[in-house]
Computed example of a mutant assay.
Amino acid sequence: MQSLTNRQKRFLKSKAHHLNPIFQVGKQGVTDEMAKQINFALEARELIKVNVLRNADVDAKEAGELLQQKTGAELIQTIGHIVVLYKPSENEPTIQLP
């Protein structure tokens, strides 16, 4: 996937602002099973938030980078304990990037 422009990232950040996190990274960190489930969610939603719990072995930045590697998604941002990921749907893309 080609890298997103700053304008596209700003657009996705504004879209993600109102979303609630749908996954949590806990003590076990980023597992392969979690990455698989996040991939399914990205296919359905394209843009998701992941919450990194305080007791996790990794911080939000590390978790975001690991998820980016394991899912092939674009890491849009990390704020506090929240990671925002974007991956266009292969079957039915709904988010139109500027």
Rank of each mutant, 00 (worst) to 15 (best):
M1Q: 04
M1C: 00
M1F: 03
Q2I: 06
K9D: 01
R10L: 08
R10D: 12
F11W: 13
F11N: 01
K13H: 09
S14R: 15
H17Q: 12
L19K: 14
N20H: 09
P21N: 01
I22R: 10
V25M: 05
V25L: 06
K27E: 05
Q28N: 05
Q28A: 04
Q28G: 00
G29P: 03
V30L: 02
V30Q: 04
T31H: 05
E33F: 03
M34V: 00
M34W: 01
M34I: 02
M34T: 00
K36Q: 13
Q37N: 13
F40C: 01
L42F: 03
L42Y: 03
L42V: 03
A44P: 02
E46G: 08
L47T: 04
V50A: 04
N51P: 01
N51W: 15
N51I: 07
V52C: 08
L53G: 05
N55T: 12
A56L: 08
D59G: 10
E62S: 12
G64W: 11
G64D: 13
E65T: 14
L66A: 14
L66Q: 15
L66D: 11
L66N: 05
L67V: 15
Q68A: 14
Q68I: 02
Q69E: 15
K70H: 14
T71M: 11
G72P: 11
E74C: 02
Q77W: 03
T78W: 05
T78Q: 11
I79F: 13
H81Q: 11
I82K: 04
V83K: 01
L85R: 02
K87N: 05
P93K: 07
P93T: 11
